[in-house]
């Protein structure tokens, strides 16, 4: 539960940055924190007490005498796979956001939101 709460806290800190901060880079950092929180949350969803990582390099993780793995010995591998993808996607979005901000800086010489409020009502 602690893990869940901590991850949620990270997510909301990231969201808070997007809602409150005026500096564009800080907002991007906030989004990045949010991504991290989400990934942590997903990983903790997959954890099972007392089991080991899903790397089968030892013989005693198998069921007796076959190539079938003993499920009760291994943590859930699926969330880990999902997080792998999610991390990469997060990186991609951050990269795009940063390039947009670099361009914005070159246009307005500022990275504060107040200078970018021309599209409105």
């Amino acid at each position: 539960m602690v893990f869940f709460a901590a991850s949620l806290l990270l997510i909301f800190i990231g969201l808070y940055a997007a809602l409150v901060k005026r500096n564009l880079i800080k907002i991007i950092i906030g989004l990045s924190i949010m991504d991290t929180g989400v990934n942590m949350l997903i990983i903790s969803l997959g954890f099972v007490k007392g089991r080991t990582a899903p790397i089968i390099s030892l013989k005693d993780l198998f069921k007796k005498g076959s190539l079938l793995v003993d499920v009760s010995k291994v943590v859930d591998p699926l969330p880990q796979a999902l997080v792998l993808t999610a991390i990469v996607i997060g990186v991609a979005v951050t990269a795009m956001a940063l390039s947009v901000v670099i361009r914005m800086y070159s246009v307005k010489k500022s990275i504060e939101i107040d200078d970018f409020k021309e599209l409105k009502w």
């Binding site: 907002i27 989004l31 361009r103 914005m104 246009v107 970018f116 599209l119």
Partner: peptide, 14 residues
């Protein structure tokens, strides 16, 4: 790449 598009893009990203 003008002020308007970039502003719209950033809001969209967030």
């Amino acid at each position: 790449l003008d002020g308007f598009s970039l502003e719209a893009a950033f809001k969209y990203i967030v």
